[in-house]
Amino acid sequence: MNLLIIMASNPYSHDFNTVVKLIEASLKRNHKTKIFFMANGEYCLLREEIKNLHEKGLEVYYCAHNAEQRKIKPESWAESSSMYGLAKLMTEADKVLIFD
């Protein structure tokens, strides 16, 4: 399965813990797992857990515009994207979950 998670909640919300556990479970079942950070979800890119999950196979995308607004400079392992990129990811996904 191709799972896409859209994360707009900040990294100190209960959503963040839910998302981390959900991704771990999804990767364990070898699902293609992608996450798109936007709005205050961009701050999650600064959390070590996301980098660790990326190293386990999570594909990480973020809205470059929202990152610029927040002066966040994500590391190169996260892919710069946009609303257009998000639309494309959504059409490719089997399931889309949004945390806002």
Binding site: A64, H65, A67, E68, S80, S81, S82, Y84, G85, K88
Partner: peptide, 15 residues
């Protein structure tokens, strides 16, 4: 004149 767009407009056009 907006850096994020300079990255993403070309990428979206190619796609």
């Amino acid at each position: 004149d907006y850096k994020p767009s300079v990255e993403n407009v070309p990428k979206s056009m190619r796609e």
